[in-house]
Computed example of a mutant assay.
Amino acid sequence: MSAHAPHGGVSVVICVYTEDRWEDILAAVSSVRAQSLPALETLLVVDHNPALLERLGKEFKESEDVRVLANAGPRGLSAGRNTGIAVSRGGIIAFLDDDAVAERDWLRHFAAGYDDPLVMAVGGRTEPVWASGRRPAWFPEEFDWVVGCTYKGLPRGKVRVRNVLGGNASFRRSAFDAAGGFATGIGRDGDKRPLGCEETELCIRLTRARPDAVLLIDDRAVIHHRVPAGRERFAYFRTRVYAEGLSKALVAQSVGADKGLESERRYATRVLPAGVARGVRDFVLARPGGAGRAGAIVAGVLTTAGGYALGSFRARRTGATFSVVEIGAAEGGGGPS
């Protein structure tokens, strides 16, 4: 595997929004600095938090490899990412969650995927780091996406996928030239309802703009994502899966239910029933958490379906939509195209 920086280098974008994650942010930056393939730059994009912007500016004032900048668009993760893309200098842009740390070869594995000129995106594997020290007995691996992690049912190895997962992903710069940036009005917005799916919508839009585009997941590109205690509770689980249903309804409205729910159909008809069966088996064998995992899967499916139904109804009634930013135009002050 080549050790040189490919295609003009890799820019890493970390979107941040709260001082509560100060130590996590510093750990994320340190993990980028320790990469075996050095990043061209690390961009810390602060989401409408002047105090955090000032504090990070002072922390990295003398830094040559870290830039701190304000989200130039509306509040939310999508606009923050678009800001980072617009001002970045690399031919590849990688995204890392602000409460995650990357393993040493994370960028090296990402970069290797782009040796194929048709590859437009490469994602990795995200492992949970539970605040309590271990996975809650009731929490099914099939729903690890609830806490931003790779879930049971995703293919292993280096494989082609419909979409990458946004907290551990990279894109070729020309992907944004072809498809525009992340859609605003669909993903997370600070402490509001934990919506998502912005990377799914972008990836589907990208493959429509570039039918020859290849999107990969390479599970050797590993990050470790902290799961706070509040997200280990069933109340958060229920809120998050409901929000996912709402988000999926927006995506289906935008790109059509055929593409918007293509992967979800396999997940719901194969992966989840197998998970319920394992939970029931574990319960029969008196293994801890079996009944809880089976019940959580059933509750998760029903709650997600409820969110999707309500989201679809609202979208049809109101014509709800979201906007797609042309990177290098209004957002981010006119970065490279």
Rank of each mutant, 00 (worst) to 15 (best):
A243S: 15
G91M: 05
G124N: 08
A320M: 07
L26A: 10
G300D: 05
I14H: 03
R172E: 02
G153E: 04
A28Q: 06
A183M: 15
I327C: 04
R265A: 14
E232W: 02
V87S: 11
V66E: 00
E23N: 13
G190N: 09
D20A: 14
G9C: 10
K248G: 01
L26Y: 00
G9K: 12
D115V: 13
I85W: 12
A243D: 02
K61Y: 14
G256D: 11
E54S: 14
T239N: 09
I92E: 05
V298D: 04
R193G: 05
I327A: 01
A137L: 13
G275F: 08
H224T: 09
R125K: 15
R226S: 11
G73V: 11
G123V: 03
G124D: 10
E41H: 09
R81P: 01
Y267S: 03
C203V: 12
L77C: 01
T304C: 11
K158H: 13
D97P: 10
E64F: 04
V325S: 08
F313M: 08
G290Q: 11
R89Y: 00
A257R: 14
G290P: 07
D282K: 02
I217S: 04
W145S: 03
D258F: 11
I186R: 05
D47Y: 09
V255A: 07
L52Q: 13
V214L: 11
E232C: 07
G187R: 06
R108G: 01
D20K: 15
G300F: 00
T207Q: 13
D177C: 04
S170G: 06
I93E: 05
D115Y: 02
D144N: 11
A179M: 13
G190Q: 10
P211D: 02
G295N: 06
W138C: 08
V227I: 15
R220M: 08
G123P: 02
L216D: 04
V68D: 00
A296N: 02
F95D: 00
N71F: 06
F176T: 06
